[in-house]
Amino acid sequence: MKPNDYLPHEVQIVARVQEAPDIFTLRLRFTDLAHHARYHFDAGQFNMLYLHGVGEVAISIASDPKDTHLIDHTVRVVGRVTKALAQLQTGDYLGLRGPFGRGWPMAAAQGRDVLLITGGLGCAPVVSVVHYVLRRRAHYARLVIMQGVKHTHDLIWRRQYDTWAAAPNTQVLLTADQTGQGWPFNTGLVTQLIGQAQFDPANAVAMLCGPEGMMRATAQALQERGLPDHDIWLSMERNMHCAVGHCGHCQFGSSFICKDGPVYPLPEISHLLGVKGF
């Protein structure tokens, strides 16, 4: 039997966690336990989740690659499929195929400072890296977590940030564009925090996730701090249908984001980053 990367496998929702009013996490397990045992992924890769009769959607994997128990997907309600996914409950069944794409450079980052910089909502792909680094704390030098959100209520996992800030050799910097009372963190864009980040530009890897304008501005601020382009990694997002580099929707110049990305070192995409229409 030839492999068919287009065919989903059945998974069951083992747990469902409401993270914020429009953000939830689905914890999944393949009903075919042998398939579950064979399933491996890298941090930063994604799966195609299929909802019966509705269709597929690309969702990054939020759990730890070494956690063989469950596969977590943190989802924000933005479109047709995610809206329908939000209605599901524990015990319901979905289709899943994956993992796809290139993940974060976790091996290359070993022994170096790790900067995780996110903008916008949630940014599950990077939260999975936070967990990854904290569980292997000795393998990495400093950990700097920077997150910018639009509104203060967009910050999910708020309690976790306190835990992370207390971890050894870890710095947490949070900011919101629009702040209200009781917001103990910064006000403004995440790029404005780069000056406060403590890292060694000669021995650091930055991982960026968020709107492209935010990532471009962040990359520039990091360049100004002396971080080389090849140590700046970005998670890109485009329309995805097939996830195997065949259907053409996610093309970014000469790259298929689903197959060659979604995570890229800056030099591979800088020529088109921010160019309208690509």
Partner: peptide
């Protein structure tokens, strides 16, 4: 080579077909 995925649920609500069709940029 561009193509899109289209989901076509049957009227019975239990069977659904996943189809691809030529798409265009």
């Amino acid at each position: 080579f561009c193509h899109q995925a289209v989901e076509i649920p049957d009227l019975d609500g239990d069977t659904s077909r996943h189809e691809r069709r030529w798409d265009s940029c």
